[in-house]
Design a protein around this nucleic acid. Structure first.
Lengths: 220, 220
DNA sequence: GACACCACTGAACACATGTTTAGTATCTTA
DNA sequence: TAAGATACTAAACATGTGTTCAGTGGTGTC
């Protein structure tokens, strides 16, 4: 309850306003926006409920401030460098150190789950980033040209974010107490393995899938 | 509001109790458990709020009844046949006809997102099913033996369920109004393509990943 | 026909919610 | 130091919540 407050990932802004915002980020990430109450956030921040409204205007505006602090920061740093060599995959970076970025990850998770303009923007930016990474990989010869870059990038982003959203289940499935470094370490290998060595031994299932899809798309 | 009530996927149980349960399934799937109110469910079912409690005892018990109706049914049918040749991937089947199973899919989505024993059981059962499918594929020669079957199965389940959980984003990313048949048709090909033709042209990234993981696991 | 049982409603209850308000302390600035 | 703004609290308000309760009408049973 207290140990979650001093993580090195969030800058040490000690103003009361920042303390409230950080408590809200933790609450929204833990229980979601609707289930989090202004009173709980105020208690976690050691403050009266009225002060939360005084500083942010409303619970919805508080959420917007949290979005700006977590998501927009992550999104901006993902979009920051135009140099393809230095493209940074922010989410992967966060996921690589899940214990240090636990709050950011939890907040991104809940933003992406419930309807939120900031969550939408994050997902879309992440797809664009992945498209760039794919294109650059092809140019560099490290990746194969895929048939549908946009859909492939979307699928890969859904995979990464799906790991985050379903982290609790993934951890439990692997016998871990909670989602953390151990879970990531166990999953990363097999995931990259699937991207490196094909699961299927021939094209038959791919052909079958394409046949079904084209049947559904053209005639019925 | 009314058209969502007559779908062919849900059996035509016309008792009031069943009408309430179906309205609850729709509400929980649409807005989640916490955000759904007993009053809204009662209104959708054309009934007074008191009757909802009269039939199910409490909102929590109503949820349990919905779990039993949707998740346990799906899970049971996934586990039903012991014959590996007839293993049915229920979620894939649902996802193949997203318009027909919209309510079930939405309900599974929200069950898997928020903490729910039924959602946990569904995920775990789905991992076991995937492990069996992988093992059978290797035996039949259609799939390659992976290095970590449990982690691979967990990752694949997270991918499939991630597609469902993030369906809204996936649809938007592909320019679709909403998540439906069109979205699935566009995604299925590239997804199976990645399972068939490797993304990476050599082992270097896989090796790098394994080095990082083993470093983190052994010494620090 | 009387009785018990059941589905069902409308109103109320107790509590939790986001927000407002009146008032107090604390800080800033001239 | 005086004054005005700002940070902050305690209490109240209005509304929405899950649930309860008293009562009504219908249905089947002896």
């Amino acid at each position: 309850m207290f140990s979650i407050l001093n993580m090195r990932s969030i800058d040490e802004d000690v103003t009361t306003r920042a303390r409230i915002r950080d408590a809200a980020i933790a609450a929204f990430g833990r229980r979601g926006f609707t289930a989090s109450t202004v009173r709980d956030i105020a208690t976690d921040a050691g403050v009266s409920p009225g002060l939360v409204i005084h500083h942010f205007g409303s619970k919805a505006a508080l959420r917007t401030a949290c979005d700006a602090h977590v998501l927009n920061t992550a999104r901006a740093s993902a979009e920051s460098s135009n140099d393809p060599d230095r493209l940074r995959d922010v989410l992967t970076e966060y996921l690589a150190q899940p214990d240090d970025y636990a709050r950011e990850l939890a907040y991104i998770r809940s933003s992406v789950i419930d309807e939120s303009a900031a969550g939408d923007a994050f997902f879309d930016a992440y797809v664009r980033l992945t498209e760039q990474i794919l294109a650059e990989g092809v140019r560099a010869g490290t990746m194969r040209q895929v048939s549908d870059p946009l859909a492939t990038a979307t699928w890969m982003v859904a995979n990464s974010l799906g790991l985050l959203v379903l982290g609790r289940h993934v951890a439990r499935s692997l016998g871990h107490e909670e989602f953390g470094t151990g879970t990531i370490n166990r999953i990363a290998g097999p995931a990259v393995e699937l991207y490196t060595h094909p699961l299927y031994t021939d094209d038959s299932f791919l052909q079958a899938t394409r046949d079904v899809v084209s049947d559904a798309t053209t005639g019925r």
